[in-house]
């Protein structure tokens, strides 16, 4: 197990390095335009361009530029925006991380509980009305744009029905935990539900398929032959094996959400997380901020995936040999 953990984190470190090189190359070595002009923002004066060149070492070879960039990002933490003059990038990101984590962790809890419950129910009650409903929700889960769903939720809760059913919904925005858990959760409730609903549909559909397969397996027949109750067969035998692919998908999705997909939800619900920061940087092409958020997010994703893989290997010893 220790060997597996070391191997997995070694691989993660390599992937992180590769991603940082890839991002660096995209921003600094794409042929066509002077990278200094891109970083300085629209209509920058020559003095600013000169500053950018000095700060990122554009007169030096590419590997040196890469090292300077990494130093600004992770050692001295003094990457500066040139569009919003003098703003330090890293502190902005650090400030935004708790918001993004609050959004994604809460949504993940809801979607896992909902998804597993609905999937199990659909798997157990195949042929009843629940089954096609879950399947339908699964199709919607992969088809509806989450930011659009968020806007529809906003339209209903902030405008159309705000004076009646949804009068308890607070205005859009984020309340930090220091204002109390109640306010924090109340502000995040609708973003959580919006994000969770789509994912719960996808997971329920996937779990239903896995369960349907597992219930035809020999070990389930053996369990039934032993005289176990149908409930025990389903929950202790079939469900246990069916959850394995769900866990690995969860690792991917959770990482991807923290790293980027939550971006759209944050924008729509006005949550000042890393995604909103990226969005604002996109609006005025503030490249240092985009580089910063992308690399931080990618690092988090890779780390999260490695952790999930280790948990996965703990659950399923077969994985350790792969």
């Amino acid at each position: 197990m220790i060997g597996y953990i070391l191997r997995r984190f070694g691989a993660a470190a390599l992937v992180l390095f590769a991603i940082s090189v890839l991002v660096f190359l995209i921003f600094f070595a794409t042929p066509g335009v002077d990278p200094a002009a891109r970083i300085a923002g629209k209509n920058a004066d020559p003095a600013t361009l000169e500053q950018v060149r000095a700060s990122f070492g554009f007169d030096r070879p590419l590997p040196v530029q890469y090292l300077m960039m990494m130093k600004h990002l992770f050692v001295t933490h003094d990457l500066t925006s040139f569009v919003n003059r003098g703003t330090l990038v890293i502190p902005q990101i650090v400030e935004a991380i708790p918001v993004t984590l609050s959004l994604v962790v809460g949504a993940a809890v809801i979607w896992m509980v909902l998804g597993v419950a609905m999937g199990t129910l659909a798997g157990a009650m195949r042929g009843t009305l629940i089954d096609p409903l879950v399947m339908l929700l699964g199709v919607f889960g992969v088809s509806l744009p989450v930011y659009w769903l968020g806007e529809v939720v906003n339209l209903l809760t902030q405008k159309q029905l705000h004076d009646s059913v949804f009068s308890w919904v607070p205005p859009l925005g984020y309340a930090p935990l220091s204002q109390g858990v109640g306010q924090w959760a109340l502000h995040l409730l609708l973003p959580w539900l919006t994000l969770a609903l789509l994912y719960a549909g996808i997971y329920a559909r996937l779990l239903r398929g896995e369960l349907a397969g597992a219930l035809n397996e020999d070990y389930v027949r053996t369990a039934r032959a032993k005289g176990l109750s149908e409930r025990r067969v389903l929950l202790r035998h079939a469900l246990r094996c069916s959850l394995i692919p769900i866990v690995s998908l969860f690792g991917l999705d959770f990482g991807a959400l923290v790293g980027g997909a939550a971006l759209l939800t944050e924008v729509v619900f006005g949550l000042p997380g890393v995604g909103k920061l990226t969005y604002q940087a996109l609006q005025n092409l503030d490249l240092p901020v985009i580089m910063g958020t992308v690399l931080y997010a990618a690092f988090f994703v890779v780390l999260a995936n490695a952790v999930v893989d280790v948990v996965y290997a703990r659950l399923d010893p077969r994985v350790r040999r792969a």
């Binding site: 992937v15 991807a256 790293g259 997909a261 990226t278 992308v294 990618a298």
Partner: peptide, 8 residues
């Protein structure tokens, strides 16, 4: 590329 969040 797989490990890189697609939107980013």
């Amino acid at each position: 590329v797989w490990a890189f969040p697609v939107y980013l």
